[in-house]
Amino acid sequence: MGKLYEMLKEDYRIKEGLKTCINCGTCTAICPAAEFYRYDPRKIVDTVQRGNDSDIEELLKSDVIWYCGECMSCVTRCPRKNGPGLVIMALRNLSAKLGYFVHSEKGRQLYPLTKIMTGNILNYGYCVHPDTFKWEDHVESGPVWKWHTEHLEDNFARLGANFRGEGPGVLRKIPQESLDELKSIFDVTGGTERMNAVEKFSEEKAREMGMSIEEYFTYTFGHCSEGHLNEE
């Protein structure tokens, strides 16, 4: 049992999610990601429980750990009460921490995701906010949403929201002292350290790929190579 395995075992999601996998494959049979991607949670759990460090390192640097949608359907159906989805979360956490995520295309998507999510949380107090939800990046939201984004204040007022307003209500402006507390939580709990690590590793990778960090953001957010899908 190697160092990476020991680091994984410190994660509470491994303690919760990996007991005694019997490799029955129920998780793979039920998995929405396995139908779409070349993905097999059974194999991943088996690799982790074998505890071989070079195999785990290969996993941490691979695309496969990023295929899961974390719907947790596998947890319901596992006959031994394992949580393959939780094992995946622990693997992703370690991959982010060690900078291994930049070795795979799907892993590199952690950079735009981190920028979008943590930016929204620390600036607005929400994971998703109308000020940063650009219709051009979400054309699937349809012509109705294009219209909505052009008339945000009118539509929110019509529907009784408190958009950017003081006091409670839908999409209120979250008071600055509460945003300051969120920032402090990030600083104390490792959230800020994680953001900085993802940024540092991504900047290095962007340089290696000959891109500015802005180009890297756009590329990792929108590019999909062949070879990920079952039907390719």
Partner: peptide
């Protein structure tokens, strides 16, 4: 958290 952008402790 489920986009794996913040640690569990956060």
């Amino acid at each position: 958290y489920h986009c794996d952008t913040i640690p569990q402790e956060t």
